[in-house]
């Protein structure tokens, strides 16, 4: 988003370290990004790069073994400075979460209606028939047919796609200003996935909810995200409008990620492109580019100096000593 415009969420230099038996893990390394009201921002990157940890850190959901530093400003308030009681109020009411596996987040012994009703009671003090009516409205909003019948059903009676919709219905019950969706469609087939993405679009249009969408599916990103933040080994390494990122990736890692996606137009010339090597798990933040070992453009500077998050040749933010010099179209 443009600097200076009012921000809903502003994450600055977020750092998360875990103490584990095998030593420290630097899961998030001074990550910075911001989200405007009603904006859909995608956070992408390979497994283990710190996407989920970033999402959980926002509202203090990480275990005690995590040491968190940095600034997280939400609607003008510094979240890490708030008491747990206050955070709990923000969670669910202002910031809602949806995770990949709805079955583990839904209570198997309560009906869908009871579970949505509970959220409405807790956060909005709504009860009885008003809650029931609102619950049915919410199911309808997320595209579940016959909502009144579904309210009386248990999670196991629903398909995976419907369970995920119920999760979203619960998440938006209080009209949150920010929805954090961590791989919300990964377990679903493409027709169901497309329906869930429609639901996110609807929420944005109807309630003005901003969405932080975590995914590694670049097709999903292309479908719905306005802006994209790419993470690598805990660092945010590129940030741009979706169109610009796909058309003119500036970081060699982003380029590699885009090239690895199967693309029929390229199949003929010798298979899919791979990125050799793997994402490092780091204990401390090196004075180097963390992608240098896998990068075809890396030189001495990359191995000895930390690149800053700077404006790249295509006008978007990139953390690279040798950003790809793609000409900006007229």
């Amino acid at each position: 988003m443009k600097p200076g415009s009012d921000r809903l969420l502003d994450v600055e230099e977020l750092t998360v370290r875990f103490g584990t038996e095998d030593g420290a893990v630097l899961a998030v390394d001074a990550a910075s990004f911001a989200l405007g009201p009603g904006e859909v921002l995608a956070l992408v990157g390979e497994s283990g790069c710190g996407k989920s940890v970033t999402a959980l850190a926002l509202t203090g959901l990480l275990p005690r073994s995590a040491a968190v530093s940095g600034r997280i400003t939400f609607a003008g308030r510094n979240l890490p400075g708030l008491a747990e009681r206050e955070l709990r109020r923000i969670r669910g009411r202002d910031i809602a979460y949806v995770f990949q596996e709805p079955m583990t987040s839904l209570n198997p012994v309560l009906t869908v209606g009871r579970q949505i009703g509970e959220v409405l009671r807790r956060h909005q003090g709504m009860g009885g028939s008003a809650a029931r009516r609102r619950a049915a409205e919410l199911l309808e909003l997320v595209g579940i047919p016959l909502p009144h019948r579904r309210l009386g059903e248990y999670p196991h009676q629903l398909s995976g796609g419907m369970r995920q919709r119920v999760m979203i219905a619960m998440a938006v019950a209080c009209r949150p200003r920010l929805l954090v969706a961590d791989e919300p469609t990964t377990a679903l087939d493409v027709t169901v996935q497309a329906g869930i993405l429609d639901v996110l679009r609807t929420l944005r249009a109807e309630i003005g909810t901003a969405v932080l969408l975590i995914t590694h599916d670049l097709g999903v990103v292309a479908d719905i995200a306005e802006r994209v933040v790419v993470m690598y080994a805990g660092r945010t390494i590129e940030e741009a409008h979706a169109e610009a990122l796909f058309a003119r990736p500036s970081h060699p890692y982003t380029r590699g990620l885009l090239d690895a996606v199967p693309n029929p137009a390229r199949h003929a010339d010798g298979g899919l492109r791979e990125i050799p090597g793997r994402v490092p798990v780091l204990a401390t933040s090196p004075d180097a580019c963390t992608f240098a070992d896998r990068c075809g453009h890396a030189d001495g500077v990359c191995r000895t100096r930390r690149p800053a998050f700077a404006r790249g040749p295509a006008g978007h933010l990139v953390r690279c000593w040798h950003p790809l010099a793609v000409p900006v179209p007229p």
């Binding site: 479908d223 169109e243 796909f246």
Partner: peptide
């Protein structure tokens, strides 16, 4: 036809101009 139309293409310029066959009704 519905299945192919729902698979997102990893290119916003193409994907956002695309139409999709929406299947209604319960599975």
């Amino acid at each position: 036809q519905a299945l192919l139309s729902a698979a997102p293409i990893p290119d916003p310029a193409v994907q956002r101009a695309r139409r999709r066959i929406v299947l209604s009704g319960d599975v």
